[in-house]
Design a protein around this nucleic acid. Structure first.
Length: 277
DNA sequence: GGTGCCCTGTGG
DNA sequence: CCACAGGGCACC
């Protein structure tokens, strides 16, 4: 479910409720989510919530940190203890003051790790992430350097996390729609201008979504922590519907195993190629 | 660099 | 019944 803007939504909603609280108990309901022991977090005070790509990082007062990756259906809610434990609750962190943090994840593709202070994180993958979409180094030259000689479709390039992190299936399609570039275009077919367009749209699409997602934990929890305010997408979910730019019915392809929606008319391939299929 | 697969659930 | 779902990984 969550891409960078949704994780940022969770972070902003949960921060004021979690920072300063002390972890009093940990209950792992689904060992698949937290393979390693999390019991060392008990007694620790939460200092900060930060984010790296699609990962949420919860800093603790002993210098250790919890790293949460949400997979497809993960979410984190801060709830009063009186709230019943949800069917898809996978890990519960009991907190002082009558609250708890509940990690829910229907499909259980998410993971939670605890990394000790000074210990190298070789498990969560966040050490291998590329630059953030708001990083000033993100520009056309950066993307061209990373992908310009590769034959993979541009959509696949946007989904990789080791050059620029945070984009998932929805926002990749949105970036390409805004850029008027076909998701199937081989990176090596794109011109310098295309790379600049994409870089700018990565920054803008993510920034717009983060801004549009502001929500309190109460509102967020009321929806089960699965729906987000910013959900007005131009490509994702619009197969068969008219393109909002040109009216042509949006089409669907599978790229890198992911459903991909695009406009066959105004998202033409970069110059140099002819056929669509 | 493409494919299957990890899971549970919903909708056609 | 099958297809599909906002992620990421091991495996050819």
């Amino acid at each position: 479910m969550p891409e960078l803007p949704e994780i940022e939504t969770v972070r902003r909603a949960a921060s004021p409720l979690l920072e300063g609280k002390t972890v009093e108990s940990v209950d792992i309901l689904a060992p698949k989510i937290a393979a390693a022991d999390l019991s060392e977090t008990v007694g620790r005070r939460i200092t900060t919530l930060s984010r790296r790509g699609k990962a949420l990082v919860i800093g603790l007062d002993d210098g250790s940190r919890l790293i949460i990756r949400f997979g497809m259906t993960g979410t984190l809610l801060v709830l009063p203890d009186s709230e019943p434990v949800h069917k898809h609750a996978r890990v519960e962190f009991g907190l002082n003051g009558g609250y708890r943090a509940e990690y829910r994840d229907m499909r259980m593709f998410g993971h939670i790790w605890h990394i000790r202070s000074g210990e190298e994180d070789s498990v969560s993958g966040i050490e291998n992430l590329g630059i953030e979409p708001d990083d000033p180094r993100l520009d056309g030259a950066f993307l061209r350097e990373r992908f310009g000689r590769r034959s993979i479709p541009i959509k696949s390039a946007l989904l990789t996390q080791d050059a620029v992190c945070g984009l998932g299936n929805i926002y990749s399609d949105e970036v390409l729609w805004r850029s008027k570039i076909c998701p199937l275009t081989p990176c090596s077919d794109m011109c310098q201008e295309d790379w600049g367009t994409i870089a700018g749209n990565i920054r803008d699409v993510i920034s717009d979504a983060v801004d549009g997602n502001t929500v309190s934990m109460e509102e967020f929890a009321a929806d089960g922590g699965m729906s987000y305010r910013f959900n007005d997408f131009n490509a994702y979910g619009r197969e068969g519907e008219p393109c909002r730019r040109c009216g042509t019915p949006m089409t669907r392809s599978v790229v890198g195993g992911r459903s991909t929606v695009w406009c066959p008319s105004c998202q033409s391939r970069a110059p140099g190629t002819i056929s669509y299929k």
